[in-house]
Amino acid sequence: MSSTSAGRPLQEVLAGAWAVRYRIETEASLRFGALARRLEGVGAPRALVDLADRASKDETRHAAHCERFFRALGGMHLSAITRVVEYAPRVLPERERLTYELVSQCCVAETQSTATLVTLLDAAETAELRTVLHELARDEVQHSRLGWAYLAWARSRMDFTFLGPLLPGMLAGSAGPEMFEPAAEDLDHPELLRQGVIPQSMRRSVYVETLQTVVFPGFETLGVDTADAKRWLDEKLARAPAPSA
């Protein structure tokens, strides 16, 4: 069995990644189902409601793929997410909270997932992995589009000024605590990439480039101020370790 330089078996690292993905996919399924109902509640176009409903079903299918890879690696115990809480600050009115949820889930998280999946697709070692990654990437494109479509529809109906100052907190939640920390050796093994898991230092570069090239320009195109978000990213990068050669 192959090991990472820290001695942790590569198989264990990979199984752990698929277990985390399983939890995130089960959570996303619930979240999209709730978003579909909330979109209906504010009179959103049927096309957006349908996208959210379809995304909920997609995520259940994705979770099944994650479970299959997890089991193939010898994983035993998986736990699904069965309840979700809103990301949005509770002090916001409903329309603003819904907007926050869609921006966070679709414009940020699903856009980042799409970029990561495309990166993984290029490097995947086996045909089976490539087939699954292709299916997932195709779906994630639609999940991301839901957020951008919502902003395009909502921009003439509400003021997005509230969003700009909230973006740093949203991005911090999306990045997680390890994104700008030194990469842990067992999570940064180059072999991970061919097996469908992005090494940690590469994950950071994909995340940052996607913010700078897709997410921030997307917000600006749709009238969401990015000054605070860009300042947050600059501060994070100034303190982050230099990427390895």
């Binding site: 994705h62 980042q112 999306s174 995340y207």
Partner: peptide, 21 residues
């Protein structure tokens, strides 16, 4: 939510969703 309800946001809750990938 499909599971029956969303509890209020808790202090310290992350403000954004993690990309699954």
């Amino acid at each position: 939510l499909p599971d029956g309800g969303v509890p209020p946001s808790m202090p310290g809750m992350p403000g954004g969703g993690a990309p699954g990938w």
